[in-house]
Amino acid sequence: MSDAVSKTGRWIDLANPTRFLSLAGGILPWLGGLTVLVLAIGFWMSMNAPDDYQQGSTVKIMFIHVPFAWLSMMCYTIMSVAALGTLVWRHPLADVSAKAAAPIGAVFTALALITGSLWGKPMWGTWWVWDARLISVFVLFLMYLGIIALTRAMDDPAKSAKATAILTLVGFINIPIIKFSVDWWNTLHQPASVLRMGGSTLDPSYLKPLLVMAIGFTLLFFTLHMMAMRNEIWRRRVTAMRRVAARSADRGTVS
């Protein structure tokens, strides 16, 4: 019984990442090309967008700030799904996906904070405001860093996978808090910073470039995520092969 289980486990271990590698190799050039194309179109559209009568040219920051903020939450959601995959279905790639996504998510969150404060300085007159939306995004950034620290702290990937998955799931509480912080703590929040994706509040001349940029950055995220996952699989293979090499070298000296 246990033999059969271990055999199927080994089979999944071998076949799934290998299949993923060949799949990624086929998809990645197309995905990368599409990303560059969409981002170029989005960049051109956002440069040609008219200035806002209130915000002037700073409205252009919105075209990158909103996609970054959105991706920072989407990345964490993907990591939470991957954490479920690790804990519930024990999918061997879920852990790789979560580990590869964490640094990318941290970078996008940092960029959302940087562009947000560069937008806040001319609009609010200050780089930083301690309101609910900003605090919760900052907390998200700290959680990304904590997860990265935890994944790097343990040598055994199998052990760190479960620990990280549990931590990721506990931290998922923060995502709805970020999403609804503008609605829940309306009194604290400056109304000028309320950005809704709803088309009704946004003129089509801004909505179109914003959507194209959002799609472009989402494609960028998936491209980078897939590449980082591939790197991670290769890294694990290298460690496994080094171990085999060390063992055979050891055996060679003994015999």
Partner: peptide, 9 residues
């Protein structure tokens, strides 16, 4: 590490 992980939460 416990403190660092827990602090945001």
């Amino acid at each position: 590490l416990v403190s660092v992980i827990i602090l945001p939460l």
